[in-house]
């Protein structure tokens, strides 16, 4: 068995890469897969706090690359899922402390022991992004339905294709079905038409994400969270299952209630 390396990236910051990485890691581990997540955002580490593992860090990715510790020593086991690990980023260094070759070497060393390696990319198109993409077998682009985020996603797709990697797949995050319906947000079809890549998941805007990040308990662990369900669905698609997209219909407005009444 050899792990598949999946890099989660976006171009624009703040669209939910780290949240997506943490939740997909949890969801894949919940499905019984052996998973390691790597925070490739050297200098601005965050995946540790989103996963609730920030108090357990002794060694980090830069220590591994520089030979200060063995790979195993930098791997933090998740509190809840015994087959989920995190390799945190260094907080005191910058992106140049790691090279794309280092990332390929670390991932190759991890491959025999895992089913999935998830790499959380930093924002931007510089070294940190190149580090994150170098070891990837598959790439997931996270975007929100906003002009700026989709534009950056397009740029990133071009850079990934220039690297000779397969065309990435898309996660649309922070989706608000009621706004789309009102004509005040780009719809899934708009984003897909413009970017012309395959969709792997739609994650609705959900307060449960903020609450789960407050607690350091990813929403994928919460059976009731809609966003958690969306991430579990994406994990199943990553594993090769056919999972229909959630129906994210807005049923709050009086007009919709009327339509529903008439339909019944």
């Amino acid at each position: 068995m050899s792990a598949k390396t999946i890099t989660i990236t976006s171009g624009k910051g703040g669209v939910g890469k780290t949240t997506a990485t943490a939740n997909l890691g949890v969801a894949l581990a919940l499905a019984g897969k052996r998973v390691v997540t790597i925070d490739a955002d050297i200098g601005l580490r965050n995946l540790d706090v989103v996963m609730g593992l920030e108090n357990r860090i002794v060694y980090d990715l830069v220590d591994v690359v520089e030979g200060q510790c063995r790979l195993r020593q930098a791997m933090i086991r998740d509190k809840r899922l015994s087959e989920l690990y995190l390799i945190p980023a260094a907080q005191t260094r910058d992106k140049t402390a790691v090279s794309p070759q280092d990332m390929i070497r670390v991932c190759d060393q991890l491959r025999p022991d895992f089913d999935y390696i998830l790499v959380d990319s930093p924002a931007g198109i510089e070294r940190g992004f190149q580090n994150a993409v170098a070891p990837a077998d598959e790439i997931l682009i996270v975007t929100t339905p906003e002009v700026s985020a989709v534009r950056d996603a397009d740029r990133i797709i071009g850079l990934i294709e220039a690297e000779g990697k397969d065309t990435p797949q898309l996660i649309i995050n922070r989706f608000k079905p009621d706004m789309v319906r009102r004509g005040d947000m780009l719809g899934t079809s708009d984003v897909i038409e413009v970017l012309a890549i395959q969709l792997v998941g739609i994650v609705p805007e959900d307060e449960a994400i903020i609450i789960s990040t407050n607690k350091g308990v990813p929403a994928a662990l919460d059976d009731k969270a809609l966003a958690g369900q969306a991430f579990r669905n994406i994990a199943r698609r990553i594993m090769g299952e056919e999972v229909p997209f959630m129906s994210l219909r807005d049923t709050s407005g009086i007009f919709n209630r009327l339509v529903n009444l008439i339909k019944q």
């Binding site: 906003e146 002009v147 989709v150 397009d154 009102r182 005040d184 780009l186 708009d190």
Partner: peptide, 18 residues
């Protein structure tokens, strides 16, 4: 709608970028 405006602006921006 602002959705339609967003799509138009996005398409134009991407055409210029690409």
């Amino acid at each position: 709608t602002s959705r339609e405006i967003a799509k138009k602006r996005l398409q134009l921006a991407l055409t210029v970028d690409r």
